[in-house]
Design a protein around this nucleic acid. Structure first.
Lengths: 218, 218
DNA sequence: AATTAAATTTAGACAAATCTAAAAATTTGT
DNA sequence: ACAAATTTTTAGATTTGTCTAAATTTAATT
């Protein structure tokens, strides 16, 4: 498998192309910052390799083999992210770019040993679940911060947007995975929230609240 | 820099193409298992980028920039090898293939952090020196086992051949870096040696002895 | 249902890295 | 020194992954 092929498979997975839902070439092109015609070419190639189902003018979806492949790549990506943060003191906004490269290293032993070194983590630094060697993974029971009742509280367990700008904003405001977040008030005008985190009160926009996942205390 | 360019630079360095010595396209092609015509093409490209000096029909040698680049790649390669052995329990015959991939990862921070994690090692698992961030490195004072006087002894500090078959042979015979090797006798007929290592006596061929580096006890 | 708009595919081109076969330059042998 | 052998380069082709522009199909609108 070439690097380009792997990147397509990963993107299709992230766009929901498992579950026999067809993803349009346009959507893939936009996500990958490439042209629809390039996607068409690759779709044919991946279909030849039995990694995707491709229906002309309709789109692509991953085959079982494609899903298995995608999970393997995602597993590697997320394990490397944990490694970078836990062992090399990278911040969570720095890991993505490097993990994008490391995920393509071909060595089963390497991945499994990294997994072992990290003591088999279940989630990456952004709270996303890490597939096991056999491809199983559990999406955590979580909800957007914007959907919490008011007032109530939850534990911060993940982020939706993983861009460096967003993650740096969170760092600056002492918002990190594992912290308790209490929603105190909602402003009806713009849906902004007043929250308490790490002992501080903070006003956050709806755009922030719709990119933070929390788990309600049980 | 593309991966192919990096591999050419590294190969030229290993063939001695620093020090203004010109390396032939044939030699490079043979080493890289490619064709001389491909080397010619790449030589022009690297010359355009000021990484090598290229004289038609004569060969190539690295420029200062080329040497700096080569040392950076070799540094990464050897640090990853140490990482694989020390942190992930790879054996020394398993590391090369994976390090060949890891050496192309582009992240200065990553290399420096790996260096730090390993406590700034000076030698890789085969006894080869690791260039520092600024490109300095000391070739160890060493000699081939075949060149030791008889009888005398030295510490095993490196291997010349790093192929998996050779390294596995060494493992099987309990020969590892850091061990003391005593040369007891030389067989005039075939230059084979009787040695003592790790408390055992062993007969080794001249081919083995010319691929093992030792440092005389001081 | 026909026309317009949008999405998708095809056709042809390009850059990177490689190859083969033929031409040119260099080296070797006598 | 000159022919033969070797090495190196050139020219043209191939593969992968991409692009643009034109053609085709599907979807939307009136």
């Amino acid at each position: 498998m070439t690097r380009a092929e792997e990147n397509y498979i990963k993107t299709i997975f992230h766009l929901g192309g498992n579950a026999s839902q067809l993803i349009s070439t346009n959507a893939i092109a936009e996500q990958m910052e490439t042209k629809p015609s390039s996607v068409t070419d690759m779709a044919k190639k991946l279909a030849d390799k039995n990694l995707v189902k491709y229906v002309r003018y309709q789109g692509v979806s991953l085959t079982d083999l494609g899903i298995k492949t995608a999970l393997s790549i995602i597993r590697k990506h997320r394990l490397w992210e944990v490694f970078l943060v836990k062992k090399l003191d990278f911040t969570w906004d720095e890991v993505h770019e490097v993990a994008e490269q490391l995920e393509h290293i071909k060595s089963e032993k390497l991945v499994d040993k990294i997994d072992e070194l990290l003591d088999f983590p279940k989630y990456d630094p952004h709270g996303d679940p890490i597939p096991t060697k056999s491809g199983e993974f559990l999406e955590r029971d979580k909800q957007l911060l914007s959907e919490l009742e008011i007032p109530s509280s939850g534990i911060c367990v993940g982020v939706k947007d993983t861009s460096a700008t967003f993650l740096k904003f969170l760092d600056k405001n002492h918002i990190a995975l594992g912290h308790e977040i209490t929603v105190l008030e909602k402003e009806d005008f713009d849906d902004s929230l007043k929250i308490r985190i790490a002992g501080r009160e903070l006003q956050i926009s709806n755009q922030i609240a719709t990119n933070l996942y929390v788990k309600k205390e049980s």
